[in-house]
Amino acid sequence: MSAEGAAPLSAQRRRTVRRQALSVGAATGAYGVSFGALSVASGLDVWQTQALSLLLFSGGSQLALVGVLGAGGSGAAAVATSTLLGVRNGLYGLQTSRILEVRGLRRLAAAQLTIDESTAVGVGQPEPAAQRLGFWSTGLAVFVGWNLMTLLGAVVGNALGDPRRYGLDAAAAAAFAALLWPRLRSADAAATAVLAGFVALLASPALPAGAPVVLAALAALVVGLRRGGRHEGPPTSRTGELPGADPLP
């Protein structure tokens, strides 16, 4: 394995991995337009929107943050929701740190690029050199695409004016549903979603905006810690993405 790990990749393999990275970057970049438009519709300005894509760089968390703020939620509730959605990136880091073996500044850069897509393409390669190339090239391709398209979406969204007239508030709900849909493969996931939905529904009239979503996170604890819970199977998706990964960064 170590001899194989030291072996340089053939030119053809490098091309294949790079092409995969670019196609993933182009695909997720397109979603950046939705985020940019929804973010300015929620009341953030173009700079704040762009700061999220540059610095937070995790699509589900970014959408959740602007969604909670747009619904009138407090900053604390928005940060809590966004952060809870980002916990999985920490788990990805456990896997990618073993592949990358990075130190110093490169480790700081690798951490920022650790998202669904870079992890999926990286760990999906058979040989170590391709794993590293896959992680870095996908992470960079998605970062560039996501940020450019965020800017486009934010500028266009800003020019549109009243977001309700264009149904952008409903588009946010649809975006969350689209992120949720591929995760509902197991009975545990379905039970969690139903329980969390009910908690949010019942808590909304009583609690300040944003708090019901944070409270609903308890549904994951209740179902996940239950004894004898059915464990989710190994990743079996068509495209080889991670279990529960978003179509966003």
Binding site: L85, V194, G197, A200, P212, A219, G224
Partner: peptide, 12 residues
């Protein structure tokens, strides 16, 4: 793994 499911369902 279930955390995003709960949060996204509540957000919907």
């Amino acid at each position: 793994a279930l955390l995003p499911v709960a949060l996204l369902a509540a957000l919907v």
